[in-house]
Amino acid sequence: MAEKAERSVVEVEVPLDFTYNYRVGQYLERYIKGLGEKKILGVRCSGCSKVTVPPRNFCGACNRVMDEWVEVGPEGTVENYTIGHVKVERGAVEKLDEPRLLAMVKLEGATVPLLAEVKGMAASELENGLRVKAVFKDPVSDSLADLSHFEPVGQEVK
């Protein structure tokens, strides 16, 4: 007797479709407004003098509110980086056509590095110690995306 193709009833898709409307909070709101004026704002801890960018409410080590606002950057130094040959999109790994450069940038005046995308250079030239500067979106959109990316500081500046 010929075997019948088995009907597949193995899987069912179950989306998790919560949407959360988080408050951005006063700190990130002020940071985003600063980006709109092409300024990068951080906060300093009056206990240990650490300056975080983006600004954070609390210093864990000192257990206190960080409340001294300072402008940092727009230039900084690459102190760690990775070159992405893939991206992770909603948990799925997808290959990229062009590598994407990510760097932890220690902005002038900041203690904690900022993770950002670096453009305008070959992946092979990205290294620790490289001087980079912030590139802002124009016109601004009052969002985190207003700090678009970083690019190498020109040779003439060195």
């Binding site: 760690n80 980086y81 990775t82 992405g84 893939v86 992770v88 790994v93 990510l102 932890m104 993770l115 950002a116 995308e117």
Partner: peptide, 10 residues
């Protein structure tokens, strides 16, 4: 920018 792989790579 940050995900399990990029953070582990950094």
């Amino acid at each position: 920018l940050l995900n399990e792989l990029s953070s582990a790579a950094l």
